[in-house]
Design a protein around this nucleic acid. Structure first.
Lengths: 212, 212
DNA sequence: TAGATTGTTAATCGATTAACAATC
DNA sequence: TAGATTGTTAATCGATTAACAATC
């Protein structure tokens, strides 16, 4: 709860720390040092300590950080206590990969509905998620209390989908389409750009440089 | 060719600029101003000008930048003149989405081979890309001159796949698995982390903040 | 010309790095 | 205790922002 303003990068790293901590707990490990977490992101131990100070969690010089307590603290910081729901738009190969990936991952953040323009996909249940026609976007989102959208449609359809999501009250969008979405400032957009990522890898594969 | 050292972020933005410039050329537009390119990344016009100065390309105060010339300059900067080839490992939903996405996109950077541990996928041709068993990774990469790997396998298999890619001589990896890959410093790794991205969107959907 | 944009430099801002006493 | 790690502050670094003459 010790909020204050936290950088966007810190938020991302907290997510990565938590995933690893949950693994540790499954394996029976109870404590972790900052340099172990630093390896996950390629960062430094000092950076990890700063990140954890941001969530108001303290460690011990001899035992490091309590894994269970830290998972709880990160969860209290990142998660909505009431849970958050996301809507996936576009049930192609990428959409199905996302559904498979997120099913059962985090109880407080799940994909609650999927939408596709192809009529044959409507009505199907994929990885436990029901698929609707895009025309039902607005009523479904309102009914399910969904405030996050995932855009996994081709570039040409992305702008229209984003408009529909915004009008349906979404406040955050995870965008896989290789276009810039134009949304109100109150809506947070996170872009994942495959082509850009591959071109970066290609460039640095030729021009040696330290890893990301 | 005006190289010098260029930040990783600039490389990514150049890729985005180029994609948009190719669209403009298709539409018959011949010139572009820095603020138009800035919209693509959410950056500033000054940032675009800095990026373009890095590739040694100049514009005109009245007409902005020549689109065709700029595409050429970015290509000369980003692309290997001899072309680069990538290998995809993991032909699940995500892998197929990547194959479909990249087919025919950039002639100088293409996915030349795919690999999967599932024997039934070997021998198939998906989106024009032949699929091999993972056991053939090393010989195939050597034969095809592949120096980039794409890891699209489950988390548990990622470390082994990365080792195989590195031993096969790959110098850059685009990693979709939610684990940190341990590779030599000479190998550049770019991570795409779906779960982290969605958790970031969820966080900022609740705590308003400017878009990414 | 007038005006918007360009290339370039100086100032500001934030984040990373280094340093160190405190802790168990 | 000795030693590695922690929380915290100061110094450094880089990137962004602001400013401005030059350009067409």
């Amino acid at each position: 709860m010790a909020a204050g303003t936290v950088s966007e990068k810190t938020i991302g790293r907290l997510s990565v720390y938590r995933r690893y901590l949950c693994q540790l707990l499954d394996e029976g490990t109870s404590h972790v040092f900052s340099h172990e977490l630093a390896r996950l992101t390629g960062g430094t131990a000092a950076q990890v300590r700063r990140d954890l100070m941001a969530v108001g969690f303290s460690g011990s010089p001899t035992r490091g950080y309590d894994a269970a307590g830290l998972v709880g603290a990160i969860g209290e910081f990142l998660d909505d206590p009431a849970g958050q729901r996301a809507a996936l738009v576009g049930v192609g190969n990428l959409g199905r990969a996302l559904l498979a990936y997120f099913v059962g991952k985090r109880p407080r953040l799940r994909i609650a509905a999927a939408f596709d323009s192809h009529p044959r996909k409507a009505g199907r249940v994929i990885h436990g998620c029901r698929c609707y026609p895009v025309a039902e976007l607005a009523p479904r989102l309102a009914e399910e209390g969904i405030e996050i959208g995932i855009v996994a449609v081709p570039a040409g359809a992305a702008a229209g989908v984003a408009d529909g999501l915004v009008q349906a009250g979404v406040r955050g969008i995870l965008n896989f389409a290789p276009v810039r979405l134009h949304v109100p400032e109150t809506v947070h957009v996170e872009d994942i750009d495959f082509a850009m990522a591959l071109e970066k890898v290609a460039y640095f594969a030729r021009h040696g440089q330290e890893s990301a």
